[in-house]
Amino acid sequence: MTHPDSHQHAYPSDIAFTPTVKALQSRNGSRDAYARMEEEHGWQTRLTPDVAGFIEQQTSVFLATVSSEGQPYIQHRGGPAGFLRVLDDHTIAFADFAGNRQYITAGNLAENPKAHLFLMDYAHRRRIKIWGEARVVDDDPALLAKLMPEGYKARGERVIVMTVRAWDVNCPKHIPQRFEAADVAAALQERDERIQQLEAQVAELKREAAVRGD
């Protein structure tokens, strides 16, 4: 697998900002701003600890691949937090659980290794886009066992390993704020317990007032 730093791009963002994209940016007035971004603080190719933590917190992500004919395909991947594992600062891997057995993603990667991960944190209105190349590993049971979430009721069939070439964090504009059902339930339980405590305190104060004859 080619290391991301070895790919011949003037800037990491060139993986997405093709000449045609840059021409459209120029036509629509945004090229100067993105040119400054490229020069001053462009996209990164290595996963920072903050981004690695964000990746491993996700329970739902989207993986995009492309067939040899150029047909894109986006597949949802889900699991408990930590099912996405950052193996080092340019490698992400996860167990591929048994599903509907269409094998579109695996087939696309056999023909074209280019892949994209789209991660969305609705609660904190944060999204990260990751470009790279991915490969399917069918013959490494030790790695598969290592990546299987403990206690999760799923059957791992293979491993998908992605080498990161570039990543970018988008602004929160237009991201609806949504929360996990489990987090909402926990917050409501905490609220109800606090209400019960306050009601008990009020009842005790009323009893004390009655004894004093207030």
Rank of each mutant, 00 (worst) to 15 (best):
A187H: 14
L119A: 02
N112G: 02
M148C: 12
A210W: 05
S60D: 14
G213N: 09
Q102E: 13
L188Y: 10
Q44C: 11
R27C: 01
D121I: 06
G29A: 06
I74A: 11
P176Q: 10
K114T: 11
D139F: 04
F179G: 03
E56M: 14
D168E: 14
I15E: 08
V137M: 01
K173D: 14
R127A: 13
H41M: 12
N112S: 06
R36C: 07
M1K: 09
G70H: 02
D139E: 12
Q58R: 15
R155I: 14
Y122E: 07
Q25F: 10
K153R: 15
V161N: 04
G156T: 05
L147G: 05
G151A: 08
A154E: 12
C171Q: 01
A33C: 03
D32L: 11
N170A: 05
Y34S: 05
K146M: 11
A95S: 13
L84A: 02
A52W: 10
E157A: 05
E208V: 08
K22E: 12
I130F: 04
E56V: 04
I195T: 08
E208L: 15
D14S: 02
G132R: 08
E133D: 14
I160C: 03
L188K: 13
R36D: 11
I15F: 00
A35N: 11
E39G: 06
H76I: 03
D5P: 00
K22T: 02
R212H: 06
A115D: 01
P141K: 02
I92N: 03
S30H: 01
A33S: 12
E157M: 14
Q75C: 07
E69C: 09
A187D: 14
Y152T: 08
D214F: 15
E38Q: 14
V169M: 15
A10Q: 13
G107D: 04
I195C: 03
H124C: 06
V86S: 09
D32I: 09
V184P: 02
R207G: 09
T20D: 14
T18K: 02
I175C: 05
E111P: 03
E56P: 04
D50P: 03
P12K: 01
S26A: 15
D168A: 12
G53I: 00
A16G: 09
S13A: 08
P113L: 00
D121M: 01
V51P: 01
S6A: 13
I195Y: 11
P4Q: 04
A142G: 07
D140C: 05
P72T: 10
R46Y: 11
I130E: 07
L47P: 06
D96C: 05
